[in-house]
Amino acid sequence: METLMQLSENVGQTLLRNKRVLVTAESCTGGGIASAITDVAGSSAWFDRAFITYSNEAKMEMLGVELDTLQTYGAVSEATVKEMVAGALQNANATTAVSVSGIAGPGGGTKEKPVGTICFAWADASGWLQIETQRFAGDRTSVREQVVRHVLKVLLEHYASK
């Protein structure tokens, strides 16, 4: 299995080759995606910034997530990550964005949204939009690492085929 550093390096090379610059909008990962990315020397060539929007207020203020979306669907929803990814692209000097919101645990889960439920959105300036919900098992640290790994793998798979 590829280390997180190897995966981040591969994503960086792929984004550079495709002339893409990334922005992240993170909730449950608390900056973990940006941290993995910026562990790579030279990542400023393909990474612009991270929005760490843990609270609903931050999601609304920094990314333009609508109050109605949060009240209707909740912070952990595909509707919310869709607005987060759009807001990240709009408020950054980037061409590609990813957003995540979820329940890393150990508490906070419900029957409908158990611990390990994570919503993702990826988008770019050329119109790509991918939204999905995944469930990951393990403790908080394990869930968060799986989320970071999944985000990077989807970016790599999408742009490697370009």
Rank of each mutant, 00 (worst) to 15 (best):
A94H: 06
C119G: 09
T133M: 12
T141I: 15
E78C: 04
V23Y: 00
V81N: 00
G102H: 07
H158C: 09
A97N: 10
A41Y: 03
G109A: 08
S161K: 15
S101I: 01
A41R: 08
L63C: 03
G138H: 13
S77K: 03
K162T: 06
D139N: 15
G87T: 01
S99P: 03
S44D: 13
C28G: 06
E9C: 12
Q6S: 12
S161M: 12
G109L: 06
W46F: 15
R149M: 08
E66P: 01
V100W: 02
L67W: 11
Q146D: 06
S99R: 04
S101D: 01
S55K: 00
A121K: 05
V151F: 11
A86D: 13
A104N: 06
T95K: 08
T53R: 00
T72C: 14
I118R: 02
S44G: 04
K82Y: 09
S99E: 00
M62T: 00
Q71R: 07
S35D: 06
M84S: 14
N91T: 07
A94L: 08
I131Y: 02
R144C: 04
E132F: 04
T29A: 13
A94S: 13
F136Y: 15
V11H: 08
F120Y: 15
T69I: 14
A121D: 07
D139Y: 06
Q13F: 12
A34S: 14
L4F: 08
K113F: 08
D48P: 08
A58S: 09
M5Q: 09
D124V: 13
L155A: 12
L15Y: 10
V76F: 05
L155Q: 12
W46V: 10
A125F: 12
E112M: 14
Y54S: 00
A104M: 03
V81K: 03
L152E: 01
T96R: 13
H150T: 13
Y54K: 00
P114H: 10
G31D: 04
A97L: 13
V85E: 05
N91P: 03
A97C: 10
T3M: 09
G42Y: 08
I52W: 00
G32E: 04
L155N: 09
S101W: 02
V98H: 04
L15S: 13
E9R: 14
E112N: 12
A50T: 07
R149I: 08
E26C: 02
F47P: 07
E57W: 03
V98F: 09
A36W: 06
L7C: 09
L70E: 04
N91K: 11
N10S: 12
S99T: 02
A121H: 11
Q6C: 04
Q13N: 15
E57F: 05
A41L: 11
